[in-house]
């Protein structure tokens, strides 16, 4: 895993939200790396810090109250934490773009969809406005929307169609990295499959690296190469998809798999993880998972475990694997 090969490498990222009632430690010492053309699934429960991580990569964490406390984010080998706002603007929507969770609210209601796509093209590519509009219509075609709908407004589209528009915006400038934040959660199941299929095809066409944020392991199985499991703001396990699915190591990951109903295997009943996700304003000391962990040892509450490589590029953040 050499640095030059990686599209994105995040080291020790820490993001806090400072509110009147206390500090919300949303992302804590997060490490992750994504190779070119690779897709990684970022998996975890609601509140695990997945969206904050994604916004952190674009430096769009709402500030105040959010603040990037520490860490480095190397995009193509350059640390974007050090980049100025004008430099960041050249990256957003161009080199890195994002698909948001709720298509119903992520499009501007008073602009036509074509204008919203053309906007991002005009921002990053030098071309006359008329040309940008043409290209916007081409993008609509690519996501399966006929150009005669180009001058329609978002409210005239269904949820699935709107998400296609959002995808068109995200891919309009052929980004090298695409962050998809639960892109299908707000959609009907049948539409989900269509949108995923579309994303998969477009990703291949544009040869884009991708971070797929989801709590749905099925989606990960569908389109990711690698998986990072997040818990309380940091990655607790990271591996190739097949390796992780066959050979989960971290107690939380194992718990996560056991919580999924499996139609082919009804011998064992569901084993939900006991307890709740900790309040990020009040994280436990040591390993944040230890209060819920079956295999917790006394020292688990004392220090935060490092990530241990157990071979095959499989990293587990748990002292059980400290050899």
């Amino acid at each position: 895993m050499t640095e030059s090969n990686n599209m994105l490498e995040i080291k020790g990222l820490t993001i806090h939200y400072v509110t009147d009632d206390g500090v919300v430690r949303a992302v804590n010492d997060l490490n992750i790396a994504i190779g070119r053309g690779e897709s990684i699934g970022l998996v975890g429960e609601t509140g695990a810090g997945k969206t904050t991580t994604a916004l952190g990569i674009l430096k769009l964490v709402p500030n105040p109250p959010g603040k990037i406390i520490d860490g480095e984010i190397f995009l193509d080998g350059e640390d974007i934490i050090k980049k100025s706002e004008p430099e960041m603007r050249k990256i957003r929507g161009n080199k890195v773009s994002m698909i948001f969770q709720d298509p119903m609210t992520s499009l501007n209601p008073v602009m036509t969809v074509r204008d919203q796509i053309a906007e991002v093209i005009l921002l990053h590519e030098k071309m006359p406005a008329a040309k940008a509009l043409e290209k916007a219509e081409e993008m609509l075609m690519k996501v399966g929307i006929m150009p005669d709908r180009a001058k329609d407004y978002p409210h005239q589209f269904s949820g699935g169609m709107r998400q296609r528009v959002v995808i068109a915006i995200a891919l309009a400038c052929s980004p090298e990295l695409l962050i998809a934040d639960e892109p299908t959660t707000a959609l009907d199941v049948t539409i989900q499959a269509q949108v995923l299929e579309l994303m998969k095809n477009l990703k291949e066409e544009f040869n884009t690296s991708m971070i797929m944020i989801t709590h749905d392991l099925g989606i990960v199985a569908e389109i990711c190469d690698k998986v990072a499991v997040m818990y309380a703001g940091s990655v607790v396990e990271y591996a190739d998809k097949l390796e992780l699915f066959k050979n989960p190591k971290h107690p939380y990951t194992i718990g996560l798999f056991n919580s999924i109903p499996d139609i082919g295997n009804d011998v064992e009943s569901l084993k939900p993880i006991k307890g709740l996700m900790p309040d990020p304003m009040n994280l436990p000391t040591g390993c944040p998972f230890h209060p819920r962990c079956d295999k917790a040892k006394p020292e688990c509450s004392e220090k935060i475990p490092a990530g241990y490589d157990i071979g095959n590029n499989h990293i587990v953040k748990c002292i059980l694997f400290n050899q």
Binding site: L60, K90, R92, G93, E119, L123, V166
Partner: peptide, 20 residues
């Protein structure tokens, strides 16, 4: 959310505020 979308496009804050 659509304001965040506009920012994620790389739009200038002034345009985000005074237009979007």
């Amino acid at each position: 959310d659509y304001i965040r979308t506009a920012r994620a496009k790389g739009q200038k804050e002034s345009v985000v505020v005074w237009n979007h």
